[in-house]
Every structure is written in C-alpha cells, then in structure tokens.
C-alpha cells in the first residue's frame, strides 16, 4: 500500500483499523519505558524533585506545536488539492493540540508553584503557550460554527495558515515583552546544560507522547470519516423521504 492509496477515505479506514491496535501497544510500551526512566532519573541539583514535572511539560509543549504543524500541512492540502482527508486531519488535530497545550499550561503552573511561589508567572514561554491555546480554541470555535464540513475546513485552513505565520511573531514579541518587563528571566530552562541522565528519559517521554498523538490522531480521523459518512447517509435519507 503506497501513501497515495491512503488518501482514499475508505482505504484510510482499513489502514486505521489495522494499524491502531499496534500503535496503541507501542505507545503503551514507550510510556512504560519512559515513565520508568523518568522515575529513576536523578533530581536536578537546583530544582529538586520538581524536575519530574518536566517529563510531562516539555513533551506536551512539543505536541502543542506539532499539532499546529499538522494542521498547517493539512490546511495546504485543503486549499491546494481540496482533499477531504486533509479536512479530516485538520479537524481531528485541533482538539488534540488544544488538550496538550492545556496540559502544558497546567503542568507549567504546577511546576511554577514550588519554583516561583506562584501558579502563574507571565513568563515568556508560558505566555506564548497561552496565546497558542487561545488560537486553538478559536479554530475549534470556527469548526463548530460552520455547518457544512468542507466550507468549515476551508475557513479553518486559512485561519490556521495565518496563525502559522503569526505564531513565530507572537513568540518573538512575547519574548521581547518579557525581557522588557522582567529584566532577567525568572526561570531559564536552556540556560544550564542538561545532563544525559535527565535528557534521555525526556527524549523517551517525547517519543511516547508523539506516539500517543499519532494514535489519537488516526483514531480521531477514523471517527471523523465515519461521522461524515453518517451525515451523507442521513442527507440521502432525508432526500429520499421528501
């Protein structure tokens, strides 16, 4: 089966049915290894045990960005090739991205309480993440406002691409704003070198989270294809009845 075959929704369903149990299994194994290593990893000499939160925080931040990347590529597929599967992929990725961005914010707040003494700091990284979260909510709101799926897909695609252009600018301006107001960053993650004892579990956890995302994305796409099928059949039923 080549990649172009997957572009057909029915073939994609077959592929999803076949591949999902395996992906789920691999994800569970990856999480078992990652969590095991994370629990066994030494504490940071400065931040103590709270560094364990990083194993959740950093991978969710990564997934928050990855999901927007997936949506952007899908948006190109929607606008350039008018491909229904691209619509489906973009729609499925939005709630996943929002959920992982939310997780990143929550773990960041819980990390901040012992580190900074407060749940929320207008730290550059957290603030950008918050704006990203708002953008995800906007895209989801758009998907939920437009009734016709392919029109919703095209509107969301344009918003996604505009967001993809604006996100680096937002990141830059928030960084600038933060240095202006704080002089020095309260907390710098990249400032100190990361020891391999911490880095390796982090990478394993990032792989596990990515696998989880891929699994959920394929499962959500399968749901969306079925939902469209149901919608089409209902429309046909209504037409036949009238």
């Amino acid at each position: 089966m080549s990649l172009t075959d997957l572009a057909n929704p029915s073939r994609f369903l077959k592929f999803a049915n076949r591949v999902l149990p395996w992906l789920g299994g691999v994800t569970v194994i990856a999480f078992a290894i990652g969590l095991n290593q994370a629990m066994g990893a030494p504490d940071d000499y400065q931040q103590g045990a709270t560094v364990k939160i990083m194993y959740l925080h950093v991978p969710s931040a990564w997934l928050g960005m990855l999901a927007w990347g997936v949506m952007s590529i899908a948006a190109l597929g929607t606008l350039v090739w008018r491909h229904p599967l691209a619509d489906v992929a973009a729609k499925s990725a939005a709630p996943l991205g929002a959920a992982f961005t939310l997780l990143c914010l929550v773990t960041g707040a819980l990390w901040g309480r012992p580190e900074w003494g407060t749940y929320w700091v207008w730290d550059a990284r957290l603030t950008s993440e918050l704006v990203l979260f708002l953008l995800y909510l906007g895209v989801i709101a758009l998907w939920r406002t437009v009734e016709d799926p392919s029109r919703a897909a095209r509107a969301a695609a344009i918003l996604t691409l505009v967001g993809a252009v604006d996100l680096p600018i937002i990141k830059f301006s928030v960084d600038w704003w933060n240095t202006l107001h704080q002089g020095e960053s309260v907390f710098r993650f990249g400032g100190s070198t990361i020891y391999p004892t911490i880095l390796v579990p982090l990478l394993v956890m990032a792989v596990a989270f990515t696998l989880l995302f891929v699994t959920l994305q394929i499962a959500a796409m399968r749901n969306e294809i079925l939902r469209r099928r149901v919608r089409t059949l209902r429309l046909m039923q209504a037409q036949a009845a009238s």
Partner: peptide
C-alpha cells in the same frame, strides 16, 4: 505538585 501534574 508532582503528583498533581501526573494526575492532570
């Protein structure tokens, strides 16, 4: 806080 993070 660690427990809460993992719970979240």
């Amino acid at each position: 806080f660690i427990v809460a993070s993992y719970a979240a």
